[in-house]
Write a protein that binds this DNA or RNA. Sequence first.
DNA 1: AGGCTAACCAAGCAAGCGCTAGTGTAAATG
DNA 2: CATTTACACTAGCGCTTGCTTGGTTAGCCT
Lengths: 195, 195
Amino acid sequence: MNVVNDSPRRQELIRVAAQLFVQEGFDRTTVRMLAQQMGIKSGSLFHHFRDKQEILCAVIEEGTQNALAMAREALAQCDNDAQMRLHAMARAHLQTLLTDRNAHVVALYEWRRLDGDSRDHLGHLRDAYEQIWQEVIGEALEAGLIRGDKLLLSRFVLGALNWTVRWYDPDGVQSPETLASELIGMLGAPAKTPA
Amino acid sequence: MNVVNDSPRRQELIRVAAQLFVQEGFDRTTVRMLAQQMGIKSGSLFHHFRDKQEILCAVIEEGTQNALAMAREALAQCDNDAQMRLHAMARAHLQTLLTDRNAHVVALYEWRRLDGDSRDHLGHLRDAYEQIWQEVIGEALEAGLIRGDKLLLSRFVLGALNWTVRWYDPDGVQSPETLASELIGMLGAPAKTPA
DNA sequence: AGGCTAACCAAGCAAGCGCTAGTGTAAATG
DNA sequence: CATTTACACTAGCGCTTGCTTGGTTAGCCT
């Protein structure tokens, strides 16, 4: 049992695991299935991960880190216009949900299968992400673009956005761009896109 | 293996199963755990249910039927005022989410563990429920209370509402009533409650 | 050439899983 | 009274699970 922390092999394992966890669910995905999908034997997995839990943790961390980075980048490329920042956040969220779809679905559905320590660690990451949302929504409130309670608004908006993984068809006609516009349009603010 | 369809014993089993499925997840809940919680032996369970899958199906059906009934009742006690009907739907949804919390959480999280037949059967039930939502939202659109695409609106709204099971605290200050008002208020329509 | 290491394999253990077969029993039913 | 029904029990079969152990391979560095 060696467990290296960052290798291309491990990255690949995480990717394949994410896909399997979505297809079958965490509990129904056996180490043998994952191993076979990688063309190795089940025992060899434990050279890369301490146990099955660690694989789940790695998958979710991957997705959450990306979402966080994407949100920060999206905001950095924005003026201080509250409307545009709100729109950028929604767009970034939907884009992450698309590009890292598997990881995010796992995060949404298998969160409770995490043990205490992992949940703690990943919980902080998620909190940081939601914090950003609350700030941007706070700005939009001050600018009078939307109305309601800041905390409630962010929860409702995140709920609506996360729910998209249930029905959104990446090959369909709707782009994350238009979806974001529609959502914000419903909140009482007319759509406005960055120049 | 006898399998009776409606007995008080079976109802109780469904209730306890729902709670366990929420606590542990469907896959991690063993027939032995459920049996012990009921004070019987694991083999005795299969007098009431054909197999473990059927328990899951029963739990979800219970919740969905109740939601459907509650929505219809809520609408029946409404005038034809589109605003009030919208509000009634949101309130009913949140109330169901509270009273049948376990069953609904199971429906949201363990849907994919259903086999093909159950998924088919329960899918129709769920479709009927979402159909009602779309109609009410359609009315609200015609009345000019909200704006956006009918299908998208219902998906976003349902997403926001269902997401509440993640953060809503039944012992907190917010009642389903106020939550419903807040949500609809965000959509651009001022809150209005039935007389 | 020799040593080191990441990556893998073969084999299997101990525990736990869903489910079945066959039986017992007390209450309801004819 | 005899029979059926509802519910539970005992005992265990056959299988899968996550994970361990001890050893092998191939490539790299010096």
